[in-house]
């Protein structure tokens, strides 16, 4: 059963369509990341689910209830804000207990529940601390505890890690993932960082200009991008113009830069396409038949990325595992594995 169902949701700010005909089902206990560049409508979508914005069309169903026209109070969403929005004049317990007042708990039951959630986020004993005295990571966990305390139907996270410094971010990300999985709560997370989405989410919904480009597991998005935008946004790739030679089973043979590529995609023989080529589609090979010159080298830890200008002028990227060759050297390449994706109708990103 799906916990969150968005059905044809639309939202307009003035003349600008921020969310266009967006549909998505999130299963019970699933973690979905709304991923996209800034301005793609992902935060608006989250605020529509929480009820802070009203949809201009479509339906929002939470746990079987149509909440489209209900105010935020009645939606039972747990929300973690980008800057946490902790109430600065209340202490940790005051913040975490804030959402419990509707349940008419007595003092002791309230304190128990607060202690329970604080333990969950590993902040036991922090009840009486002022929230302004906490570190960024601790504030984030208090925000999480506050959202979880009233046992919401769905947890909404708005860029939950963007406020942390990079060293803290990775650890917090891991903790967040483990916590959310342990509780088993349905979670929707907004982020513009691919790595964050890959690491935390079961499925990723990639947005572009208010539209859903593709939804799927990280692997699906990477190895079978539905649009040229997805291929460009997820992972590295270069794009070359090409032409479909013929269809072979599930894949296409595409001619581009004088090379015949094996690519995913849907197009007819003879059709002009844009071909997105990932670095792993090629490898440096002394016996290879594709010749070119190294024009740039970028060090990336375990390997190097070489930009190679082929003899017909097109530039491709390839990974190399040793420091040679240097910029200016001649090099030969060979086709390696999958990693080329053809798109018929997409405009360049």
């Amino acid at each position: 059963m799906s916990t969150v169902a968005l059905d044809g949701v639309r939202k307009q700010f003035g003349d600008v369509a921020v969310v266009r005909d967006f549909s998505l089902d999130v299963a019970d206990g699933e973690i979905v990341a709304l991923l996209g560049p800034s301005g793609s409508g992902k935060t608006t979508l989250l605020r529509l689910i929480a009820g802070f914005e009203q949809v201009d069309g479509g339906r929002i169903v939470l746990g079987g209830d149509d909440v489209t026209s209900r105010p935020p109070v009645a939606r039972r969403c747990g929300m973690v804000f980008q800057h946490y929005a902790l109430f600065p004049h209340l202490d940790v317990a005051g913040n975490v207990g804030y959402g419990l007042s509707g349940e008419r708990l007595d003092r002791a039951a309230m304190a128990t529940r607060i202690a329970e959630v604080l333990e969950l986020v590993d902040l036991s004993g922090y009840e009486r601390r002022p929230v302004t005295a906490l570190s960024g990571g601790q504030q984030q966990r208090v925000a999480l505890a506050r959202a979880l305390a009233p046992r919401p139907r769905v947890l909404l996270l708005d860029e939950p890690l963007s406020n942390l410094d990079p060293t803290l971010r990775e650890r917090t990300r891991r903790e967040l993932r483990e916590l959310v999985r342990r509780i088993g709560i349905t979670t929707i997370l907004v982020t513009h960082e691919q790595e964050e989405a890959f690491d935390i989410a079961d499925r990723i919904a990639l947005l572009h200009q208010g539209r859903l480009e593709q939804v799927g597991t990280p692997e699906e998005l990477y190895s079978m991008p539905a649009t040229q935008f997805v291929a460009g946004f997820i992972g590295r790739s270069v794009t070359l113009p090409g032409e479909v030679i013929r269809r072979v089973g599930d894949s296409l043979e595409v001619a581009a830069a004088g090379i015949t590529w094996r690519a995913t995609g849907a197009a007819e023989a003879g059709q002009a396409v844009r071909l997105a080529i990932r670095p792993e589609a090629l490898r440096a090979d002394p016996s290879g038949t594709i010749a070119g010159a190294v024009v740039r080298r970028r060090f990336a830890g375990a390997s190097w990325f070489l930009t190679v200008r082929l003899d017909d002028g097109a530039e491709v990227e390839v990974a190399a595992t040793s420091a040679s060759p240097a910029v200016g050297d001649r090099i030969t390449l060979a086709l390696a594995g999958p990693g080329a994706h053809a798109f018929a109708h997409d405009a360049p990103p």
Binding site: M79, Q82, A85, F87, S101
Partner: peptide, 21 residues
């Protein structure tokens, strides 16, 4: 910070309680 008001609302506080607390 508007998100403080939104946070209170998301936690179930009505207008009066948000104003008061």
């Amino acid at each position: 910070d508007t998100s403080l008001i939104e946070a209170a609302t998301a936690l179930g506080a009505g207008r009066v309680r948000t104003m008061r607390t």
